[in-house]
Amino acid sequence: MELFIQQLTNGLAVGGIYALIALGYTMVYGVLKLINFAHGDLFTIGAYLGLTLLTTLGLTNYLGPFGVVIVLALMVMGLVAIVGAALERVAYRPLRTSHRLSAVVSALGASIFFQNAVMLIYGARYKVYPHDILPRTAIHVFGLDIPLIRLLILLTSIVMMIGLYLFIQRTKIGTAIRAAAIDQGAAKLMGINVDRVIMIVFLIGPALGGAAGLMVGLYYGQINFTMGWLYGLKAFTAAILGGIGNIPGAMVGGLLLGVIEAMGAAYISIAWKDAIAFCVLILILIVRPTGLLGERVAEKI
């Protein structure tokens, strides 16, 4: 039982990061019906920018650990949001009226571009965050050692998810985003500036991805230029699992995927864990073709 709970917390921490990245996928998808394959690379960029800011600004000299993290997170989110908005402007906007798949190819091209740009700027070697930023204490619960930071990662993801959910549901801009997601044409007729809505979506989604990148860097320490591809794929899986376009769905999908992986590794086989996760995904989709929380879209008549 102890082992089970330990594995559950392991899975939830990983899942929290998947969820955070999946939120970005889901937001963009919700409005544009576009799978932004470059999203994983925005996550990578967040991780690298975080490292650069951390080592050049010397924030640790005047702020405590959590102050540093908060300031850093805001800066990284801001910068990655700008990259995201620029990406939308350059690579996706010209394709908005064409077939959905054309934008997918553009996204794949952008992904290759970003990944190699990071490699050329920072080099191909692993980069490592300084070790002493976050306290490494563990909490003892039920006779288990759970690192505090794992809980914080999970907590941060949940807080961001709730914040995003409230933003979408309660604010005026959120309403505009929802309207644009349902019908862009009608939204335009109602006086909503759809271009601006899409721009906002492309600011928020990448910002969340960048924050996830920073979290990975701060917690795991090691970052490399190819990591976005793997995380991106996992997060995309998570978004689909929960029902893409649905914000709580991305959260549920992310956490569930993390737990499935941990449990698959623990009780079946480590080497097969990704295959197990995909099998579960396929089974779930066979039973619920639009994911766990996805809406049942009526067939168009």
């Binding site: 350059v90 690579a91 010209p94 064409s98 054309s102 553009s106 091209g109 952008a110 990944q115 190699n116």
Partner: peptide
């Protein structure tokens, strides 16, 4: 050399922008 895939990625984006249907 090491920039070859970078250029390739940029090329893909540009190509799709100018020829959206392929």
């Amino acid at each position: 050399a090491t920039a070859r895939m970078l250029i390739f990625g940029a090329f893909m984006v540009v190509m799709m922008i100018f020829r959206t249907e392929g």
